[in-house]
Design a protein around this nucleic acid. Sequence first.
DNA 1: AGCGGCTATATTGTCAACAATATTGACTAA
DNA 2: TTAGTCAATATTGTTGACAATATAGCCGCT
Lengths: 226, 226
Amino acid sequence: MAELLSTTYTRADEAFDCLQTAIVKGELAPGEKIGELELCSRFNLTRGPLREALGRLESRGLLVRRPHAGVKVVSVSASELMELYRIREVMEGLAARQAAERMTDQEIADLQATLDTHERMIDEAQGQAYYQAEGDYDFHHRIATGSRNSKLAQMLLGDLYYMVRMYRYRLSTSTGRPQRALGEHRRIVEAIAQRDGELAEFLMKRHINAARQNIEKKIQEGELTI
Amino acid sequence: MAELLSTTYTRADEAFDCLQTAIVKGELAPGEKIGELELCSRFNLTRGPLREALGRLESRGLLVRRPHAGVKVVSVSASELMELYRIREVMEGLAARQAAERMTDQEIADLQATLDTHERMIDEAQGQAYYQAEGDYDFHHRIATGSRNSKLAQMLLGDLYYMVRMYRYRLSTSTGRPQRALGEHRRIVEAIAQRDGELAEFLMKRHINAARQNIEKKIQEGELTI
DNA sequence: AGCGGCTATATTGTCAACAATATTGACTAA
DNA sequence: TTAGTCAATATTGTTGACAATATAGCCGCT
């Protein structure tokens, strides 16, 4: 996240970031058992800072640890993924409501500009899943931040999103309903621009609920395997 | 499958628990800067495991860390505490709804019995704040667990509650509105017993909202200082 | 042959010494 | 007097060695 102030980067921080992105990008597969010294050689550091990073990641739920038995990447079942979306639904609904009350006009303008960019990306990239996922993440990221609720933003950006992205990187090729999602995004921003918090919350909840149902359907149809 | 009771508790786990309870109980005051070796002598362990525990606590937001500058207990401002209650409102609302759908009849019966105990405690202890806080925590704990949403329970029990309790221990003497809270609890359980998830969610949200407004009022009246 | 207990090994947990850095205080100069 | 600089110090970050334990493979037993 935005560690603007402390220019000092400790080895443990480095390890934390490397591991987190490695997990999210799928370089470390869910359920995979990982040895400490293996990671040490991979990231060029010693076990002290590494273990500190492992502790942090475990605390955030990206790793599971068993004493003396090692660490493995968390594996989320299909039903657990659906539960994650239930949580997102209510939390991002709150974020949208508070964003409507608190975002500056400038932030809202930037958000609208962001959506224009996303639209061009969709047209140009013709369903390139990566850009869809990135655009979607960007949108939700801005609203979480715009809520001015630091704990809420921390929980969304520092916890849930990493977990969801971990699977979105893998699944986004199939989910693609970009123009519909973009339309939903536009309506949410509209509500925020009108400072209609209640409506923004409602639309955001419906948006995430639709995404959940979409994934659920694909899973049931066997198109997605988790 | 449930919890393979790893009877092995590592030193870091021990440090984590000790520190967490020390912070929650107020033995370590918010904003207080704490030295590592001071903690080592206090808990009889070395810096290795301690640092791992510190990392975990920082990741959960109970500690703030600045490289080479030390660790201090997080201090939550009044407005941030209010934001915490906003988050609780939507998350516990979800928990209540899912609990109404998923709790077993036995769990519901236990929950009702719990409320009877709370009622006796209120009568006997005549507003002893400690028991009120404990009873309240017990109630919310059971519902979070009853949601069968492991991530939701983890976020509530492992994150938010510690933060709220940290201030509740200090403020509970003044908040006391025990019989009203108990009545609200009873109505929530009633809705759960009737498997009315929508109503349970509504009542829970209103319950937490009332608690938030109560604290907010006391703060504005100057009765509480944070 | 199949199963249970045991030992060997590799991995994790812990420790104490070493290196790096932010803070504190004194000191100098305007 | 006050602001700024610099060095001394104490605290944090890091390292590599040591101790404890879970896993895996082997052996003997039923």
